[in-house]
Amino acid sequence: MRFPETLRYTPSHEWIEVTGKKARVGITDFAQKELGDIVFVELPEAGRTVKAQQACCVVESVKTASDIYSPVDGTITAVNADLDKKPELINEDCYAKGWIFEIELTNPAQIDNLLTAKSYSESYAT
């Protein structure tokens, strides 16, 4: 399994990639493997304001529905519409083509509280 060093992670298996004041969010390689074949993503609405650790969308595999939590406070600015037709992008490429939503950070300092690749993979991805 792969956990890029450039990303930050949550105990609930989301990754976040920060670029300036914006960030992209998705689920980790571990999470997509655990869920199995992903068949549907209920995307969040762009413009919605969310809090860290708030459930804001749902990823559905054949077996189960799984809430996705925002890693940070912010406003959702974009969603990955490709997932509507091809939810399997999350299985195929969870860190790039399988991103889920983009968020504008309210408080960029929150990123420092998130897990590094090393601590996530050691403590949660097992």
């Binding site: 199995g36 074949d37 068949v39 595999s61 054949v62 077996k63």
Partner: peptide
Amino acid sequence: PVHYSGILD
């Protein structure tokens, strides 16, 4: 076993 190659496959 719950799955091998994946449920869809």
